[in-house]
Amino acid sequence: MEREEARGKGLWLSIVFRVFAVIFTLSGLFMLQGLSEGLEPWVQGFMASSPLPDELRFHAAAHGALIGILFSGSLIVMLRNPLEKPILLQFYFVGHLVFLATLLLTDVKLALQSFFVFIMFAVVLLLLFVTYGKRRELFRPAETPVRNRTMLIMTGIALLGLLPVLLNGIIGQVQDPVQQFRSGESAALSIVMLYGGYLAASSRRGSRALAVLLSLAYLFMGAASITLPDHPGSWGIWGGAASILYGLVYTWLAFRSKVSHANTAAQASS
């Protein structure tokens, strides 16, 4: 009887979580302009009331990658079997915290002006946390992490590549606070991508999906860089090509690690 009650409660929680996930995904894509800004390198002023200045188009692409691909993408992936992918919600949580921390550290004035953003994100995170069925799994996972050495090395390579972007973003934001946290957002994107790479290397449940999202982000940023090689914040043609190559290799490794994971599971079960 108690078990049935618990099952019923879990089902309801799962439904509510999914509803919130859909709402926040749509909010990220449309209200926070994850979709429209993400398309800015190729389609200017898509679904926008006022056109974005040309020098911010690459920054817009970074915003699209962060909000549209990584954050909204995580919630979309979690619509199916959310309890099996706690790592994605962890990534979503920490990603938002990184975003807010970067804002606070690089532009205190702007952070104080847009305090509602902190409250809004806090509400979003709180609702998702409360409705998630396996809250304990978020920060104290029962799974023993098995570090994937290749993925960790890949994250190390990404660190080498993203470090100049990160430093440049922080310096840009500190030196030019007029641009509404555009450079700082690029820095936050770099940190979030590196953190995602670290999580994806843990081989926990859902890490493959996270790796695929990261690959998409690298491919997207590479394409945007090649499209807008000389715009502020752009990684340039060589940086863009390297990012696309990295994204392809990362995708391949993500699917390869799936096989090895399955093998390990099969061995363990046998």
Binding site: L160, L163, P164, L167, N168, I171
Partner: peptide
């Protein structure tokens, strides 16, 4: 080269 790139 990387260091010059990193610190601009």
């Amino acid at each position: 080269w990387y260091l010059t790139l990193l610190f601009r």
